[in-house]
């Protein structure tokens, strides 16, 4: 793909893998409250962050996402009680490992955002979009189609 940073019209594609019980509802709340946030994030709804295989994150980067956002319930508020706590360990390792092999650390973001935090969700998306814009289009791990 002939995308590069010098292209002024370039905007990042961000895959958001979010929990059905909190962040997805939070995004909904942001929507019905008419809070504005950048349209760059495509949400994928999963039952729980504990359900996310680290491979989803790697695969999203390979298939052309410029950034990945993973968001779930705050610790202690998981619908399934502890799904996000085991996810937290997994993601800590993912984040460290990706930056260890030389992928920019800001490409992958993990955060918590509850169903009542529409405002926070919009800020997260704004922040993540800014960070990924700064980095430019992804070049590492991207499959040439």
């Amino acid at each position: 793909m002939a995308e590069n940073k010098s292209n002024e019209n370039w905007t990042p594609k961000i895959v958001g893998i979010v929990c059905n019980w909190c962040t997805y509802a939070g995004a909904d709340l942001a929507g019905i409250s008419r809070i504005q946030y950048p349209p760059n994030v495509r949400l994928i709804r999963v039952p729980c962050t504990g359900r996310i295989n680290p491979f989803y994150v790697f695969k999203a980067l390979q298939e052309g996402a410029d950034g990945v956002l993973v968001s779930g319930c705050h610790p202690g508020e998981c619908h399934y009680l502890t799904g996000n706590l085991s996810a937290r360990r997994k993601f800590n390792m993912v984040k460290n490992f990706l930056s260890y092999i030389g992928v920019e650390p800001n490409r992958v973001t993990f955060t918590w955002c509850s169903a009542s935090e529409g405002e926070r969700f919009s800020k997260v998306v704004k922040g993540v979009t800014e960070m990924v814009k700064e980095l430019g289009p992804a070049t590492k791990l991207v499959k040439k189609l």
Binding site: P75, R88, R89, F91, N92, K95, T111, R120, K126, G127
Partner: peptide, 19 residues
């Protein structure tokens, strides 16, 4: 095993906070 256990106080300094 590491990934099938967790603690409430596991480190989370990698979590992004927009505030």
């Amino acid at each position: 095993p590491l990934l099938s256990s967790f603690l409430m106080e596991d480190k989370e300094d990698f979590i992004y906070d927009p505030e």
